[in-house]
Amino acid sequence: MRAMPALLLACAAFSALSLCMGPHGFAPGIVAQALAGEETGRLILIELRLPRLLLGLLVGGTLGLAGATLQGLFRNPLAEPGVIGVSGCAALGAVIAFYTGVSTMLPLGLPLGGVAGALIAIMVLLALASRDPRISTLLLAGVALSALASALTALALNLSPNPYATVEVVFWLLGSLSDRSLEHVFLALPFILAGGALMLACGRGLEALTLGEDTARSLGISIGRLRRLAVIGVAFAVGASVAVTGAIGFVGLIVPHLLRPLVDHRPAPLLLISIPGGACLTLAADIAVRLIGGEVELRLGVATALIGAPFFLYLVLNLARRAP
């Protein structure tokens, strides 16, 4: 927890930098204009850059926290919303809600679609993990779920009457924070807060689960309740996040892993510290995609995968070496 102030400071710095970033790199003039009360500056700062920053903080924090929660729950350092297919299924749920028009009829239809998709994915994984707790089973099931979800997402988009929908699979599978509005922030916020609170309430249970299910139960922890808390928490927060920004991969993998030594490998403080950690990484990646630039911006998920995928490989090799 000694690292907490430093992480919060880094978050603040990245936040300030994020507000100063235009679509083509560093452009702090807008902030000055907005502070001077100029309308164009205000509009760009409040309606474009602020939602982008807020979603980066919220979604990044969610992914970090969800990664830490899932890793604790599955007792597995490779568990992550993206890797195990939860994000992919959330995207599918959101796509169905969005393109069928459910999200226009129902005020919270979009995040609810994402939550439903995420919930189904985690239930399937938990059912599998209870039969066969091996790491490889979880990962292979995640691969299958992800593949199925992305195929169904592409199918749903293809069946959509809108010709633009087909190419939007890129947004849903790779995620982006660009051109989102405050409406998206408000849409996701209640689910992210509720889900985050549920995940944070898992701390005691995840600590006990360090020693396995039997010992955790002998310590008075109800595994059923712990699972429900974690599953609903992850589904709410990740489902709603993916519904407004698409699936941003690997944040939930990298962040808990890097921060774990800073909290002496304890699952409960890791939950808390992964929130600013995830936010920092996501903001940094989002700043990077704007620095790289290009008229059609690089998807955020591309940036996180460029760091995350090699990292994932390294972890797999490391685990293989430790458990021959």
Binding site: T100, G101, S160, N162, V167, E168, S181, L182
Partner: peptide
């Protein structure tokens, strides 16, 4: 509905 079309509805 499409994300592309929704873009034009940005506040």
């Amino acid at each position: 509905r499409s994300m592309a079309q929704e873009f034009l509805d940005h506040p």
